[in-house]
Design a protein around this nucleic acid. Structure first.
Lengths: 193, 193
DNA sequence: CTTATCTTGGACCAGTCGTTCCAAGATAAG
DNA sequence: CTTATCTTGGAACGACTGGTCCAAGATAAG
């Protein structure tokens, strides 16, 4: 008897994710979302709730569909240090060129958007996921004797996560990707000795 | 003949700097600035221009009065690696405790505020200043044989800058300062070998 | 086709945005 | 004190904010 939705929720959330990613939450009005999705306010509010709910859903979706696959790829890569190098290489390319150049990372950007409790939980998921992936790659590297002796694996995983955040942040300023590469390379060389 | 200003512009700019620093540009209304400074809109607009001009002035002031002294202190510190370690120690303490805990760094935060040309120029000044300070400290460290052989000084300076940005960013999530310290310490240990 | 139920477009809400403007107040030279 | 000039408080501006509401439209079971 009832009517059914005239749109695909997943598709809509992707559009929302993109607009928040590029512009940030504060700079994005519901009007922009209406325009970007083609939906009316009624449909948006009845299906997703208000702006904050929309943002949270976009954040979670970004983590699940964009970040997590990268993390999993890194964790599953059995090469050790080269896997970490390639991760950063891909990250820098992603952040500085292509469709999303200079957008940074939606989750990193969220740090400066005055995230609420729920958003902070997503940040924590993101951090733990990336740190875990680095830790896995470092353990492999250690097993393959790719690391200098005496390297603190936990601390180094944390350091690499920080480096990734910085790449995300700095990419929004339009920094030269070569500059980012020199920084990352210096970190990895210091580990390999 | 003319009247004179009934306030101290420097004092007002400090209040503006604090509010932008804590809340971000987008989340701060002119009303907030009126309340924080005690001035009326007329005085604000006639003396400083609009919101964007105020932000730019606050950004520049932050760089000159807060960042630059830290940079200069680091560059002038003759101890080499320990100077870098203490810089990060002070940074983490500043970002995670005290009056400005969880505020991050106004310049780092600016990356996600859709900075215009003028603001980007300040970001560049900031980056160059911090990088120069790290480079100076690294050169001292190298002269004192505190560094492993084969360390790329330029790349390492860039890496340390990235680390500082990440500390600033992550501090806004309320991260445990001890976690930040382990990451920083891992980076420095990798340099010292 | 009827009917019950959900969705949808778009008008509409009060509140806030950054900004402008002007009369009233303050100032100091003459 | 007069007067010229600048500053100041506060009202007002149109545009836009996130959010609500309801009549009209779409849907599919009976």
């Amino acid at each position: 008897m009832p009517d059914v939705k005239h749109f695909d929720p997943a598709e809509v959330l992707t559009a929302v994710e993109l607009i928040f990613w590029r512009q940030g939450v504060a700079a994005t009005g519901m009007q922009d979302i209406v325009a970007a999705t083609g939906l009316s306010r009624s449909s948006l509010y009845s299906s997703f709730g208000g702006k904050d709910d929309l943002y949270l859903a976009a954040l979670q979706r970004y983590l699940d569909r964009r970040s997590r696959p990268m993390f999993d790829g890194l964790a599953a890569d059995g090469r050790g240090l080269p896997a970490i190098g390639e991760f950063f290489e891909r990250l820098i390319r992603l952040r500085c060129s292509g469709d999303h150049a200079r957008w940074g990372c939606l989750v990193s950007n969220a740090h400066t958007e005055g995230p609420g409790e729920a958003a902070l939980a997503v940040l924590e998921q993101h951090h733990a996921g990336l740190r875990g992936a680095f830790a896995a790659a470092l353990e492999v590297a250690d097993g393959k004797d790719q690391l200098r002796s005496g390297v603190d694996l936990d601390g180094t995983a944390e350091m690499l996560v920080l480096l990734a955040y910085a790449v995300n942040l700095r990419s929004r300023s339009g920094v030269d990707p070569a500059t980012l590469r020199t920084g990352v390379r210096a970190a990895l060389q210091a580990l390999a000795g």
